[in-house]
């Protein structure tokens, strides 16, 4: 089954375009002398386009009664331990992946905005790995699972109140478009 590879499009100012040359085969990303210092016009670029389209998945994913409709696992502060209430949700996604071996998911680790940023990148990865391990234990192939940590770089709630901090401490199970 072919994964839809998201191509990266670079929009580069014409003054700089002449300098662009090679293409990195792995990422499909143009490498060139974009973003030259002092040239404010030439800094639009590096954009990954396209979000994951939930509409292409089955109806069970939008049925609030179905655990598959929940795709966010929440954590305690500075912890990557999975809390009891989220085990059934992870199990439901693991079951789905077992019965759909071609389906891949990305486990995106996130943290609250407290503390230092690179430490939070590491913490986010530990959270994603905790979900990864629980799915593997249930038989999901490692090939179906990918991990990325964004740390505190992509908060869903922007405030620093306790509720917002709690909402940001999470792993998102992101289904990849087939």
């Amino acid at each position: 089954m072919k994964i839809n590879i998201i191509t990266l499009v670079l929009v580069v100012g014409t003054a700089i375009l002449s300098g662009c040359s090679s293409t990195d085969k792995k990422s499909g990303l143009l490498e060139g002398d974009l973003n030259r210092e002092g040239n404010a016009l030439a800094t639009e670029g590096l954009d990954a386009s396209g979000d994951f389209d939930m509409n292409r998945l089955g109806a069970e994913f939008s049925d609030p009664a179905n655990p598959l409709s929940k795709r966010t696992i929440y954590f305690m502060h500075d912890s990557s331990q999975i809390q009891q209430e989220f085990i059934p949700i992870i199990a439901a996604h693991a079951q789905y992946l077992l019965s759909h071996p071609g389906q891949k998911v990305i486990l995106e680790g996130h943290t609250d905005e407290l503390g230092s940023r690179e430490y939070n990148i590491a913490l986010g990865e530990q959270r994603a790995k905790a979900v990864f391990r629980m799915m593997k234990v249930q038989g999901v192939s490692g090939n179906q699972l990918e991990i990325v940590s964004y740390g505190e770089e992509k908060p869903v709630a922007e405030g620093m109140d306790l509720a917002s901090l709690q909402l940001n401490r999470r792993v998102e199970i992101a289904y990849r478009v087939q």
Partner: peptide, 10 residues
């Protein structure tokens, strides 16, 4: 101020 890199991702 001058921008040296810009992205929709972090």
């Amino acid at each position: 101020p001058r921008s040296i890199a810009s992205s929709r991702e972090p």
